[in-house]
Design a protein around this nucleic acid. Structure first.
Lengths: 270, 270
DNA sequence: GTTGATTGGTTCATTATTTGAACCTATGGT
DNA sequence: ACCATAGGTTCAAATAATGAACCAATCAAC
């Protein structure tokens, strides 16, 4: 592992619940020597990726990332476009909805929207990366990814996040086949013991997935009817998210998402 | 210079006008060997800081920065708070308004808003860092910075961006004194030959500047009356930006910004 | 106060990583 | 068929990263 990666990995320890981290704690988290971590933090700070609280001397994310986001969004406005789609989907189904972008072999959460219409909410941490094999977002992305990606992911050890996480490669392949049929993935308590989720892929300009859109529902509220309703709403949001970010839906996908699942085809329809 | 810095500096070559950069061009820009740059890009890509266009193989900013921005904004919502302030100021004065955050000895642009009410606009590149000595934003930040920072900045060679850039340390110190009196800085064509600008500091929780808010006006439109009007509007925006991001105005500053410059004091006023 | 525990930070000889000239391959233009 | 330019790789030489030990400051308990 290169020095650059070691330094950049430090940034991943920041999260919504841990926005400031001290030197010694960083060294513990990263399992590296204090001196090494300090050098890395100094370099990150010099480049504005972290900044130091003047009093506590703890480190937090710096202004450089905000500027870089502004630069990327100016020409490639994924975030600006996806936000209203996520928000209106969340409002429509009344549940927490989130979107994430493919980053290597994980999904990098972009943001979420929680309409807060129920007493219990799903906890969602924007700092936590999502695995491809154990989330509805991840599996829906994987289903439409090139075969070599699928082979690579399924050949490595698959971590079980709960007792319901699917870890058998052969069974996962059959799940991926189902997802390719329906276009979406419904996963029950595979990543979080109390959450049932529905996810679908957002496609890029080459017709391959660049990210995902998903709805997370507390398992206690996840009735069959509710999940069907969410699946329908999600289908539309997926289409919209893909086309408005400049992506193209793969051939089969467009057809599937045109057909409302519960509506029988009309004979005279054009 | 450490390896981490060399890699991170590559990200600074991206800008609104240059959102994708190829390997060889990167090597030219950075003045480093192609092999070195390639290794750095591979590491940045592995961490999601850049991604590669599948067809052209050019590199662009990656999804990791979006996630990190989301994490920072969740607990430290500078961007979300400053946006409406910048937008309403831009609408009020009818000119391009921008905000930037202090990052080391430079200002890192956060975003800008252009109301587009005139035929000519100021060009503003979010990718370009702003120097402290040659911009109204920078000088207003410098004026309220600790003496050791002022000494450090003024003792290093000061680049002249135009023939009107102030580069004499002694004269700059007198300018800083004036800025401390008025709270704001009005600078004419010092960074861009065709732009006149007015800037003021945004203060952090310790009463030291964390960034700046500024209005940029095409020099041809920069009449005395217009600039005075802008100065007044900016004063209010500065107060609002500082307090709503959790900062505190330094002692003298609060008083100054209460007093409209062109209004004579009333004798019976409390 | 004094002690001890914890934190941020630094030093420098040892060690491992980064570096870059040369090389390979693919593509596009003439 | 040729040249120019692009992305990417190799491996010995050069350089930068590493970490155990050390220093200083802070804080809580006694």
């Amino acid at each position: 592992m290169g020095t650059v990666t070691k330094a950049l990995e430090l940034l991943n320890y920041f999260s919504r619940t841990k926005p400031e981290i001290g030197l010694v704690e960083f060294a513990r988290l990263a399992g590296r020597d204090k001196a090494t971590v300090h050098r890395h933090l100094v370099e990150l700070e010099a480049n504005g990726f972290v900044e130091q609280h003047p009093q506590t001397r703890a480190y937090r994310l710096g202004p450089a990332i905000l500027r870089l986001t502004a630069v990327r969004e100016a020409t490639h406005p994924t975030r600006r476009i996806l936000r209203p789609i996520v928000e209106s989907l969340a409002a429509e189904v009344g549940e927490l909805c989130h979107t994430s972008l493919l980053q290597g072999d994980m999904l990098s959460p972009l943001f979420h929207s929680d309409p807060m219409v129920h007493g219990t909410q799903v906890h969602f941490d924007e700092g936590e990366m999502l695995p491809l094999h154990a989330t509805s977002s991840g599996l829906s992305v994987l289903a439409f990814s090139p075969p070599d990606v699928i082979d690579r992911i399924l050949s490595q050890p698959l971590k079980a996040y709960t007792d319901l996480t699917l870890t058998d490669p052969a069974f996962l392949r059959s799940v991926l086949d189902d997802i390719r049929q329906s276009g979406l993935c419904n996963l029950d308590q595979a990543f979080d013991r109390e959450v049932s989720s529905v996810g679908g892929p957002i496609f890029g300009p080459e017709g391959t997935p660049i990210g995902a859109l998903a709805v997370a529902v507390p398992a206690v509220r996840a009735s069959r009817e509710k999940m069907d309703e969410i699946l329908n709403a999600l289908r539309g949001a997926i289409r919209q998210a893909t086309t408005s970010t400049g992506g193209i839906l793969p051939r089969g996908f467009a057809v599937l998402s045109e057909t409302p699942p519960s509506r029988p085809p009309q004979p005279n329809e054009v």
